[in-house]
Design a protein around this nucleic acid. Sequence first.
DNA 1: GATGAATGAGTTTTCATTCAT
DNA 2: TATGAATGAAAACTCATTCAT
Lengths: 215, 215, 215, 215
Amino acid sequence: MSSAERVRSAAVKLFATKGFHGTGIRDLAQEAELSSATLYHYMGTKEDLLVEIMTTSLHRLIDAVAKATAGSDDPVVRMRTLVALHVLAHAAQPGETRVVDNEVDALSAPARARVVALRDEYEQFWAKAIEDGAAANVFHTAQPAVTRLALLEMCSGVARWYSPTGPLKLEDLATHYAELALRALGHPVAVRAHDLRQCLEVVAQVWDLPVQEGF
Amino acid sequence: MSSAERVRSAAVKLFATKGFHGTGIRDLAQEAELSSATLYHYMGTKEDLLVEIMTTSLHRLIDAVAKATAGSDDPVVRMRTLVALHVLAHAAQPGETRVVDNEVDALSAPARARVVALRDEYEQFWAKAIEDGAAANVFHTAQPAVTRLALLEMCSGVARWYSPTGPLKLEDLATHYAELALRALGHPVAVRAHDLRQCLEVVAQVWDLPVQEGF
Amino acid sequence: MSSAERVRSAAVKLFATKGFHGTGIRDLAQEAELSSATLYHYMGTKEDLLVEIMTTSLHRLIDAVAKATAGSDDPVVRMRTLVALHVLAHAAQPGETRVVDNEVDALSAPARARVVALRDEYEQFWAKAIEDGAAANVFHTAQPAVTRLALLEMCSGVARWYSPTGPLKLEDLATHYAELALRALGHPVAVRAHDLRQCLEVVAQVWDLPVQEGF
Amino acid sequence: MSSAERVRSAAVKLFATKGFHGTGIRDLAQEAELSSATLYHYMGTKEDLLVEIMTTSLHRLIDAVAKATAGSDDPVVRMRTLVALHVLAHAAQPGETRVVDNEVDALSAPARARVVALRDEYEQFWAKAIEDGAAANVFHTAQPAVTRLALLEMCSGVARWYSPTGPLKLEDLATHYAELALRALGHPVAVRAHDLRQCLEVVAQVWDLPVQEGF
DNA sequence: GATGAATGAGTTTTCATTCAT
DNA sequence: TATGAATGAAAACTCATTCAT
């Protein structure tokens, strides 16, 4: 792993576990096994590093859902895909996703605006799927916006506790959450692991992970 | 409001919005309209303040669910109650609850152990209700533990966005989430605001809020 | 013990063991079992308290040696008496004497000048006795001033380690030191406890201690 | 002089004159002509600095007496050497030695234990010499332990007042104290400067001082 | 690329002291 | 006599960052 990569992954790890404000430059240097002065060869300011992590993570999420939902008109299929991708991303990349989800407040106003715009762009995929499903009478929810937020939070939580070394396989995790979401949307159908195969592939591709069950 | 109260509410507000590490003693002093030295009349260390906020908040949650579920054997009713109380608490006290949910990592090891123990005690009410419902065949979930975590995260998210001045009334919010949760548990029944009246009362009592629709 | 006395004895104890700068107002308050605000009823500033302790201690020493050596022309007797008194005072009042010996540097310039003047006044008794003994050819020392300092330091050290509950009785301690001093001055004569009886009485009187072997 | 050396010598000077608690970080920075932040490049905490000063000083004393007394069986010669070395060290390095002698109470418990152990190791040389002399009937003292403490204090006092620019030469100082000590031990023999030549050399070597009369 | 040295501004916390009650 | 409340100044120490090498 190059020094640049070490810096980035140290930042992801520490920002995720200790928070942006809880992580010092010296912590980063120690984790990356570099001097703190050397850090500045690979990053701008500490905030630049945070922004970079957040934007690449969000861009990847957006890429992934764009790819995986392209060409699908069925809101149920799209919803299933969105949930699966979100959960897989949070389970496979808990560091980056926790940073995105928890450290928005640490950003300065202009950087925050850019990040929030990306997050909104991403959430639009969810909003659209829910709306379409409601219009098609396959989803039943009195408060589509509230439901969207509820489901997003539900899925994001995975990054807080999922362990790839635990008994639960990634595909079963994704399957389970997809089912929870569809049930909550009033469309209680069984989801099979097979339905989510494409999602695993997209995640592997976008995040450059080895294609295997547990990444 | 006394100085001691001002310190506490300043801490809740700032820890919730800027995070523990993102909040300086000077920020607290300014928000509480006291000198930073005076702050130390009313608190021990900054961490003591955080611990106090977390433990009282968790004790209240535990009190509330203990009160509201006492004497109810029906897992569906208990689950409905747990969800409603959780959502109401997070909507009515977004500051305290966000601090509890997000700042556990900021605690030193011994304090964290105590807080986590309280949180586990609280989550046991959820675990029990889900187990009982599954045993009684009214809930259907292949992964009860995962489902519990998913639902808890879903409900906690409310503290991030709910606004009491928005169009959504507290009782409708609680109703909606209760329905989402019961659906996700495979028990899709309608929930009426009337069913949750007691929850509103318990919340008002435990958090010492004015008894009215929007607190 | 009155509050005023508690303040003073707390200060003596803490200044002696932790030093003036190492002792905080709150430490004093705790030791005296008073609030820190109440302390200020009984003292001026912290430095005033230190000055008071030092000056009363030095005045007592001066009183004691003036009393005990009055009317004695024999330099050997006077020296024996000075050593015994110094050692007894340091053994019986280790707190006050350690403060006098160690905290002079903590005083502001004007206060230091006053304290040093008192100390010099006291040391004059020693200087005079040594000079007289040298003139009378009973003491033999090439460097009277150096010898005076050496003997003073030797005797002051008692306050650092003597314990009244240990095996060594006060009168034996004084006897031993008197002999060491006379030997060092080239006048090696035996000193008997009986010779120092008056010293014990003077010390008991000046420091208001119960007249008994161990005070 | 390097920055690191400037920090150390500033600390020795200020800890010796104002005490550990009486010396602030800003005082050290000013004396060392560095910013207070830069200080922390060269030291750990303020206490680490104190510990380092004390331990190196004690190690040097131990080295010096080990070297100078090696191969000497005569208790009188050893005692003479111990006194001379102690006095020379305190006269030539009054800063370090005063810190060792006066600031032990400023240490935290674990650091204090280590320092006291070193001091005890050093004092064993004195204890042994006195015991051996008493056994050989060349020293006469009823209380060997008390005598040891008395002589140590007597010699340490030199650091409080000796000035290398004054009229008293180092070798005369050492000679005088050696004589005082031997007299106090009941072995009143003349000591000649020539007897202590080796001591001056050892001190010059161990403390890395220029070999000349006044260092 | 990499780093030791350096620092101004910042951190949390404690200081001695005052004062209204 | 006694104290809780209050504070400006200072304490020790860390911060993110720069720069000469």
